[in-house]
Simulated assay, not measured.
Amino acid sequence: MEHKPLTSIDRLSLNQITTDRWSLREAVEGSVRADIPWIALWRHKVAETGLAESRRLVRDAGLRVSSLCRGGMFPAASVEERRAKIDDNRRAVDEAAELGADVLVLVCGPAPDKDIAGARRMVEEGIAKLAPYAESCGVRLGIEPLHPMYAAERSVINTLAQANAIAEQYSPNQVGVVVDVFHVWWDPELYSQIERARGRILGFHVSDWIVPTPDLLMGRGMMGDGVIDLRRIRHAVEDAGYDGPIEVEIFNQAIWDRPGDEVLSLMKERYLQHC
């Protein structure tokens, strides 16, 4: 595939966590002002606004929803807790369908005890229970592997190889993977695993890895402020068949504290420069 520099923002999506202080309404209105065509929604922001009103705001603004975050968090200590998590995931699927998002991002969850292998089995079992329902609603499940530093708190799925191994058990119309550069840039198998995911990449998220890393959760940088080879990774996911929206997803208090319109302006500039 011939690679060309990004010359427009037609694939750019604001993952609304990047402007965390904004309500959903403010994020929608800010995206319209900035001519950003896509938005990625978070369930807690949707809940604050209300599902029907969130759908109306996005639809009336002419925005497209690249994904809903998040489902997952499957492992739990008891059968009852695991059943409750499946029920919540079904609600997440319903919300994604209502919002017009065909991808529900799965942050798969940590182990409830020291048995990380058992927790990974719980993740597989949870996805197996959820996938048929999601398919019936027209929603695909995107497994997002998280950096190993999050294994104890957020997800026991930590490499793209793990995510691929689970996704390959299903049709690409049911389950795929989400490539977030912050979580996978370090992986020696990254490019072979991206190729392995051909036809199954359901999302591509960008930010940067700041050195020194200021905070494990809140230390993501704006594109160009760190060490990730963003353009090479973009080329790889495109070679693997992905041509969908590119979400900017940044957890960083200093960025959250800036005026949202400034953040979106910088985001657009860096997207074209570095992605």
Rank of each mutant, 00 (worst) to 15 (best):
I210D: 05
A97M: 13
D10A: 15
Y191P: 12
L160S: 02
R91E: 14
D261M: 11
D261I: 10
K268D: 00
G142E: 09
V58Q: 03
W209E: 07
E98T: 09
D261Y: 00
G118Y: 06
R198G: 15
I250T: 04
V177P: 05
G126V: 14
T18H: 09
V105E: 02
F204P: 12
L6G: 01
V32R: 15
A151L: 11
P259Y: 05
V139T: 04
W186C: 14
D87A: 08
G100M: 08
N173P: 00
L14I: 14
A152M: 09
W22D: 01
D115Y: 00
S8K: 05
I210V: 15
A240Y: 06
A111I: 00
M223T: 12
A101D: 06
H183G: 14
V65N: 05
L41W: 08
F74L: 03
T159H: 08
F182V: 02
S155C: 12
E168A: 13
C108P: 03
V123M: 03
Y191Q: 11
A163V: 06
L99R: 10
I166V: 15
G199H: 06
R21A: 02
H183S: 09
P145R: 09
R231F: 11
D20C: 13
R120E: 08
E98C: 13
A197E: 06
E262Q: 13
I86Y: 04
G142P: 11
M73W: 14
L12G: 04
R154D: 11
D88S: 12
G199R: 08
S171G: 00
E247K: 06
F204N: 10
D225F: 04
A119P: 03
H235G: 07
V263C: 12
P37W: 13
Q193Y: 11
A34E: 09
K4Q: 13
N15R: 03
L41V: 14
M149V: 13
D20F: 10
D243M: 07
E124K: 15
V107M: 12
E238C: 01
R25G: 12
R83P: 14
R234L: 14
A134G: 13
Q16G: 08
R154A: 15
A151F: 05
D257M: 03
G219K: 01
D87M: 02
I246M: 09
M73C: 15
P212F: 07
S31Y: 07
A101I: 11
A97P: 05
E153C: 06
R64F: 04
A152T: 01
M73G: 12
M122R: 10
I246H: 05
L104M: 01
S67G: 01
V79R: 08
L51Q: 11
I228F: 07
E29W: 12
L264I: 03
E249A: 13
R55G: 01
G226H: 10
R21Q: 07
R196A: 15
I255S: 06
P172D: 10
E249P: 08
C69R: 02
P188T: 05
G100C: 04
E124D: 10
V105M: 15
A165M: 12
V107S: 03
E29T: 14
V211R: 11
L217S: 07
L230G: 00
Q253E: 12
D94K: 06
D35H: 13
E125H: 08
A254W: 11
E124L: 02
G126L: 13
L104W: 09
D94W: 00
R220N: 05
R198L: 08
V178H: 00
S66D: 08
A84K: 06
K85L: 14
A111P: 09
V32I: 02
